[in-house]
Amino acid sequence: MTNTVVRRVLPPVVLGLVALLVWELGVTLARIQPYLLPAPSAIGKQLAVVFPSLWVAMLATGLNALIGLVVGSLMAIVFALLASRVRVIDHIIAPIVAAIAVVPIVALAPVLTTMFGATSESPRRVIVAIVVFVPVFVNTVRGLRQMLPVHRDLMQAYAASNWQVTRMVTVPGALPYIFTGLNIASSLAVISAVVAEYFGGLQNGLGSRITSAAANSAYPRAWAYVLGAIVLGLIFFTATLAIEKLATRRR
């Protein structure tokens, strides 16, 4: 038991430490300039210094990502349910989703910031919701269409209502697909929340801290915030995985 834990955890940890060592030695021995690549020790030092504000920035960006993720995913699932049930809605939504899928958030961010005003968190949340919508919608629709003919016949034989079919067969059958979408969406949510901050507005999140540190040539500090963004992304990803485990164990 502990043996397998050791065997699974030890190699990546060792690899990580070795990589850090090589990085540190490489940067000092080759005299690489900090604006190209700071040494891990320098980043670590900055991490300790900025930790309180890093924590605040992580919370701000994390909250935006979370709200956008929840709202965008819920809308995607609801619309997917509608599209799978009502053909007309399917025909209306499909081109809209195709259009949303190609919206460059880089182009959208400044527009939304102007629209909502520079003191609002809303533009970031809207961007996250839009980015998250597509993968969740596409995967959910695919999952909802997976119903086996034998299950359809069975539910018809039982004279089950549409709602019963949805609740007992279609949605549980689609869950693995929905979670595939959510797994992709959870990482995208953090990335887009960070990137959205690059385009002005409130200066409270990871993205704005990274840009301002870089603008002040404080490269180790910028990297410390990047590290924070990575950790935030990992938290979102593992949290979705954990929810998936819980939900698919007993559907």
Binding site: V150, H151, D153, L154, A159, M168, P172, R251
Partner: peptide
């Protein structure tokens, strides 16, 4: 059918895998 006067068994069992 609406009265559930019959039970039906198909060639494949058609069980719901999550139940």
């Amino acid at each position: 059918r609406l009265d559930q006067s019959y039970g039906i068994v198909f060639q494949s069992a058609g069980l719901l895998p999550w139940r």
